[in-house]
Amino acid sequence: MCDLKVLGNSSSPHLRTWLRVLPYRFNLRVYDIHTGRPSILENLRVPVVVPLPGVFRRVGKLFQYIFLGLWLRWFCRRDGLIHAHNASGYGLSALLSGQAYIITTYGSEVYGARRRGVIYRWILKKILSNARLVTTSSDHMRRTLVRCYRLPPGRIFSKMLLDPRFLDGFAIDSRGQERTWFVNRRMTELYCTISVVQAFKVFVDEGGVGRLVLLEGDADRDYAARVRAEAEDCSNIEIIRGFVDQKKLIEQLNRAHFAISVPKTDQFSSSILEAAACGAIPVLRNLESYERIKGVSIILNDSLDFESSLISMFKETSALPYSDVEALSADARSFVSDKFSHTDFLESYADHIDEIA
């Protein structure tokens, strides 16, 4: 089995999905700059190394990524490959390590690069161009990498991974009659959580009935405080604090009729597939990266401003007959089950690794 050093946030649900599947073919070890935080990898039997002392948290993430890269360069064996889960952070560590590496891109770091300045774009291009392989979750990201960063198409692996336990954990009996919307994205400005809360409150004030469930996750602390302040006067809103393990997440998704994902920019996120696998109908912003799943999703109305489109969505989805909700739910779940096999993903990924290792 090939050795794979995984660089990533060990509290990330995204990373959890990969680490459920990869151990079937690879010897894994996770390297993480984060310290003193709960990890959702505790039950995965994947070793997590936090090489930087806690004092490094005071110097800022950029320097933590730099120090991690230098630590890997000076103290870590050079056998196997590095797989960095995000380009602009752990990708910098991989570049500085002097070792062969793979990058998994995140949508915001690539799509929002122009707003971050010339130096950021230059570093990002260097990180991507030196990667042996770049993995993405959407054709839109693949086209962006080829067009804007001149990456050869043959060095881009574009395939989506779904943890099979979400399909296995589906329990339709958990879903009640009261309409429930679940935001399966962490609380940050990128995911527009406050806008969702404000729109839901308008919906309730105008006589709407239902429940909105928010997942705090790996939240921006200040932004999460603003979300809680905005939601505190609405008893129809539930906030799940901190991190949740997979079992609890599946339970929440099984209770939800709809799963909201309306970020400003995004790739095709595994959180959308996880929700659909549990029968929660995706409610999505009209992003090009979501093209593959739009046919079994509810798409916000582009002709309205963002908050109005959210209010309209709450009204329309609450008015859907229960039989229609069940049919849409079954379609979403069937689509995910048919199109996103974790075994196909693993075989294809392993073939690419064999070519570059």
Rank of each mutant, 00 (worst) to 15 (best):
H140A: 15
N130L: 10
R132C: 09
S138C: 00
L151W: 03
S138I: 03
I119V: 11
R142C: 04
S138A: 09
S108E: 13
R155L: 01
C148G: 02
I123H: 04
L161I: 00
R121F: 12
S137Q: 09
V146K: 02
P152W: 05
S158G: 06
T136H: 00
R150Q: 12
I127A: 07
S108R: 14
V118Q: 12
L124E: 03
R115Q: 15
R147N: 08
L162W: 04
R142P: 01
K126Y: 14
M160L: 10
M141H: 02
N130C: 10
C148S: 09
K159R: 12
L161C: 09
S138H: 02
R116T: 12
L161F: 02
N130V: 03
R121P: 06
R132Y: 00
R147C: 02
L124Q: 15
S138W: 02
V134Q: 10
R143K: 13
H140S: 13
R150F: 00
R115S: 15
F157Y: 09
L162S: 04
S108T: 14
E109S: 09
M160H: 07
I156H: 10
L162I: 15
R121N: 15
A113G: 11
R143C: 06
V110G: 03
S129L: 07
T144W: 01
T135K: 10
P152H: 10
M141D: 06
Y149V: 07
H140F: 15
V118P: 03
D163L: 04
R116N: 15
V118R: 08
R121H: 02
G154H: 04
M141V: 04
L133P: 07
H140D: 11
E109N: 05
R147K: 10
K125Q: 13
A131Y: 12
L124P: 07
L124W: 07
T144P: 01
V110H: 03
I127Y: 06
K126G: 04
L161A: 05
F157C: 13
T144G: 00
R132E: 08
P153C: 12
D139R: 06
C148N: 08
R142A: 03
G154R: 08
H140P: 01
E109M: 10
T144H: 04
V118I: 14
S129E: 11
R114I: 00
R114G: 15
T144L: 02
R143A: 12
K125W: 10
L162Q: 10
I156M: 08
P153W: 06
R155V: 06
I127S: 14
L151M: 05
R116V: 06
Y111D: 15
H140V: 10
C148F: 01
D139V: 04
N130P: 02
L162C: 08
K126Q: 13
V146T: 11
L128V: 11
M160P: 02
A113L: 03
R143E: 06
R121M: 14
Y111E: 13
G117Y: 05
